[in-house]
Design a binder for these strands. Structure first.
Lengths: 335, 335
DNA sequence: CGAGACGGTCGAATCGATTTGAGGGACGAT
DNA sequence: ATCGTCCCTCAAATCGATTCGACCGTCTCG
């Protein structure tokens, strides 16, 4: 029945009386409105954006960075009547198993958060299915859109801030280097070449400022507890660094907690800086010195790219700016 | 082409040579595999479970309770090849606007988190579309499945724990009473009847223990900062309570921070208890006394109910147990 | 040697909404 | 009064995979 379609969609010209008649009949027959599947098949569009979260959801969701970007994305997609389908991707060390959803779920566009390495089986799978992809914080690649930030420049900026304060013994706590997600001080060999782009760039930022970290600690995930572990190791050894540059705010918070635990005053005894600019209400009265990235806007930007792609635009790369926010956790180097 | 279907699905009997021939032809034509929309239409199933989050995503995701349940749910649904579609539902005070996704997205079952009141337009909309619904922590209603916990009993238990420690002046910090989400001390009038089931039940638990709170503070959301605000008010007034029972761990953490801020020792000067049993690594060295609910299992239980519903089972109600975990934030009442 | 059984292949109908194009009715204008 | 136009209604084709049933070839057993 084509008239019924018009009656519900309200698209074509239709008499009010006819529409009413259709609606009455529908109610009588217990018809609950158009079946979305039919519409989607006809349109050739599912109205669904798959969001591939490159980590166990439990862990990814504990990071406000992920959730805030997701919020910005959902917010923008909502205005376009696009839904977000959550696709976990447990990319274990050697696991090549791809979530079946990635293989078979209907989606018009895919968004990959924490894309990691460029050779990811996730990206390969999406490419094979011919699904346009937007990457968040990944390596630039042909055919996919990428939204990133100037994290290298941001880290350089915060490192210079520490140099200006007179620090010379600077350590760093990093995000995972690769899917192995090790926990511990870095060997110079492994240090050479992180497989994960984000870790590599943020590490490079320190060198851009002309600094070679006195120690580098790799954590298995951006979580407070891992930051605390790192902090205990870095701050209790001999030749304690006077400043610690962390690749995320959660890690930095952990280091702050470890410092407090060890009886060190922040920032008198040790300066600690983070990255991301998330809310840390429980760190009060301290305010973390950090590089603020526009998280919600990042999500919204991804949404815009998705919109453009659906409108037929070419893949594109966008880089968002970051700003240094000086808080109370960094101060002059102890003399 | 029906043979092609068989070749890809591998379901029916098919000769290896034919399958190979089909695959070759597919590769040559640039055919990327079966279109999920066709399959879904034919099957009459979309393979999608809509998850309605009853709050702004940014806020909901900041609460580990939500994300952990979601993780448990996604984990179980993943084994069933079901995808999770995120549906925000900005239920403002008087807002009746329903997210268009709720009206038009394809989903086989809906899960409503933080369902709130039973008269929710969300539930009404789902019922009208005839979509089976699983409610998390909502009011029992005919036709919908509900997964809940014995929070009333849990609160009673933790209140008795405080009574045993000799406390008599007990205050409470609550979740929102309704969509107004007020922030402040409760008037006895409003206190009478919280519209939101979860708040009502947890409040009732205190009374079950034979206690009438000396003060009740309503917060606009389960977040650390709101707990801190509540703590500052409750703990700085005259006739300071010696114990505070909070309806969530995040709220309790905020109260702990407020107490520290005011120079009060926990638990010597004031005992503080929470609810949920989430990880609070940054509260160290304190361990929150709290009522632990099995969050991941709760999500998995919802997943099971979804599975059963898709298999044709009737709506069902499940209640999960809670356990009291005594930490370092409660102690004998000051004399 | 013939008939039945079986494995494999293919055609056609189906799921449900959309959309195009044709047809019919009513009203206004000449 | 008749023609033209406009507005509405409706039939039919389409999107793509699935599935039932028909058909054909071969193999086996009597």
């Amino acid at each position: 029945m084509s008239t019924a379609s018009l009656a519900f969609s309200g698209a074509g010209p239709i008499a009010a009386t006819t529409r009413q008649r259709v609606h009455d009949a529908a109610a009588e027959l217990g018809y609950a409105g158009p079946n979305p599947l039919g519409r989607q098949l006809r349109r050739g569009r599912s109205g669904i954006v798959g969001v591939v979260v490159g980590d166990a959801l439990s862990r990814a969701f504990r990071d406000p960075v992920t959730t805030q970007v997701l919020d910005g994305l959902v917010g923008h997609l909502g205005t376009l009547d696009l839904g977000v389908l959550l696709i976990p991707s447990a990319s274990g060390p050697t696991t090549t198993t791809i979530d079946p959803l990635l293989e078979s779920a209907a989606m018009d566009v895919a968004v990959v958060m924490w894309g990691g390495a460029g050779d990811s089986p996730v990206l390969a799978g999406l490419a094979r299915r011919g699904i346009p992809t937007v990457l968040i914080e990944g390596r630039l690649a042909p055919g996919v859109s990428v939204v990133g930030i100037d994290d290298r420049g941001g880290i350089e900026q915060v490192t210079r801030h520490l140099l200006d304060l007179g620090h010379t013994r600077i350590a760093s706590v990093t995000l995972p280097f690769d899917h192995e997600r090790r926990d511990g001080l870095m060997t110079s060999q492994r240090l050479a070449d992180p497989a994960w782009e984000i870790t590599r760039r943020r590490l490079a930022g320190i060198h851009d400022a002309g600094v070679t970290p006195v120690a580098v600690y790799e954590t298995p995930a951006s979580l407070v507890e891992h930051g605390a572990t790192a902090g205990r190791v870095l701050l209790s050894g001999p030749d304690r660094p006077t400043a610690v540059v962390c690749q995320s705010d959660l890690l930095a918070s952990g280091v702050v907690l470890a410092a407090r635990e060890l009886g060190l005053r922040v920032p008198q005894d040790v300066s600690i800086a983070g990255f991301d600019g998330i809310d840390l209400p429980w760190l009060a009265p301290d305010v973390l010195t950090t590089v603020v990235q526009p998280l919600t806007e990042k999500g919204a930007t991804v949404g815009h790219l998705v919109e453009d792609i659906l409108a037929g635009a070419e893949p594109e790369h966008r880089e968002l700016p970051v700003t240094l926010r000086v808080g109370t956790t960094t101060g002059p180097a102890p003399s």
